[in-house]
Nucleic acid binder design. Structure first.
Lengths: 224, 224
DNA sequence: CAGATTAGACAGTGCCGCTACCCAATTGCC
DNA sequence: GGCAATTGGGTAGCGGCACTGTCTAATCTG
């Protein structure tokens, strides 16, 4: 199909598709002539994925590009995909961010302590470490007593979360599809998981300091 | 103190403080004359909070304003604070967002089913419901079979997370401080929790399809 | 061969989070 | 009391980002 049909089928404006092509988010079509290129279903799929990451999840175009690159390059081992390419935050990069050089590894003692305590096997370079250390530092700068030990319960829950995540994709055999699913479940689920947390917070809060109108207690689920 | 000292002590440029004042993020100081106002420690604290929400967490200025308003107005019942003021996403609001009118309530059947199944008591108006429904719809549009039932395990984990969250603030007596702590732990912790999930994913993935270099298994923690 | 379509490039737009500048009022200091 | 420095308040501008509109030359379609 040509670009117009791609646009029509995806609902993404022509000009925007060209923009994604320029930015390298969408791989170029097979050029049939100087002013003609042919796109296929994979492009359509990729385009929908881009829109989900950028529009729904709110990733910046640059971040989405990293994710997609990781996804297609490391399609062989999807766990590379999961752990890769993040410092990623919503567009506006923080000012104090570029600081502390590329000595990215090693310089996150609290994350390291946490990973160690959990017995996790995780790359030194996983940028999630930075996020953890920075968050803890920020909290303390606001007079909240908080260190990596306070995160241990959350880490335990994260571990179980990760198990569900992995369960969901292990049945997929096609490696590319597997990588894509991993990306989708990791990123698109994030807002939903945070939303669940907020719902649970409201519920728990109501339960504790009686917002007390109506009691409830029907279908409780128990997990293995 | 006057604005310059506030600037010096917080590290936030003078002009930016004025900007926050204009946007209503920071309450005005006590005016002592036409061109003079007096700020105190609460302003400094608020300013640091703003920077954390906007700079570290990545909230838009408008979103941060909502959060801060909810925090100061509903300071009496912090569970109002927790459940309030969100559709909040990182700046760029999605195009398809404003759709489906203000019939915000009721129109999120999957979130409702989930809340019901969990036996939660949560306001119909909690915007987290929308996020959940939208996420599920997006996933399905990408050919991922996923409905609210798939979220049940996550909901259970969210419930436990919420319990830890509430444990952390219930000891605080001063209501304003309590509300502030709730905001901090809800919002600032979000990136860290997602980071933990990514670390756990990498670990779990390594464990399953042996990234197999070095085995480990030291200090495992067990939760109550 | 006429009319429509396309790839590719580039300038322009709107929004956002600042930031720089200006002005008149006020202050601290002598 | 005089004067430089500071302040509050307002307005305009800036840089980055995610598009969007337009132009051109080549190509396809009928």
């Amino acid at each position: 199909m040509r670009i117009s049909e791609l646009s029509r089928r995806s609902g993404v404006p022509n000009a925007t598709i060209k923009y994604y092509l320029r930015e390298g988010l969408l791989p170029p079509g097979r050029a049939t002539a100087a002013t003609q290129a042919e796109y296929d279903e994979t492009h359509l799929r990729r385009l929908r994925l881009i829109r989900a990451l950028v529009g729904v999840r709110g990733l910046s175009v640059a971040s989405a590009k990293q994710v997609l690159e990781a996804m297609t390059e490391h399609r062989t081992d999807p766990h590379e995909v999961l752990g890769i390419a993040f410092g990623i935050r919503p567009s506006t990069a923080g000012a104090t961010d570029t600081a502390e050089g590329d000595g990215t590894a090693g310089a996150n003692p609290e994350a390291a302590a946490l990973v160690d305590a959990m017995g996790w096997s995780v790359s030194e370079h996983n940028p999630a470490r930075q996020i953890i250390d920075r968050t803890l530092r920020t909290l303390r700068s606001l007079d909240v007593e908080y260190d990596w030990r306070a995160l241990l319960p959350y880490a335990d829950l994260a571990e179980r979360t990760a198990r569900y995540d992995l369960d969901r994709i292990e049945s997929i055999t096609d490696p590319l599809e597997k990588a894509e699913r991993a990306v989708l479940l990791t990123f698109l689920l994030e807002p939903a998981l945070m939303a669940l947390r907020r719902l649970a917070q409201e519920n728990e809060s109501t339960a504790r300091h009686g917002g007390g109108e109506h009691q409830q207690g029907p279908v409780r689920r128990i997990l293995p």
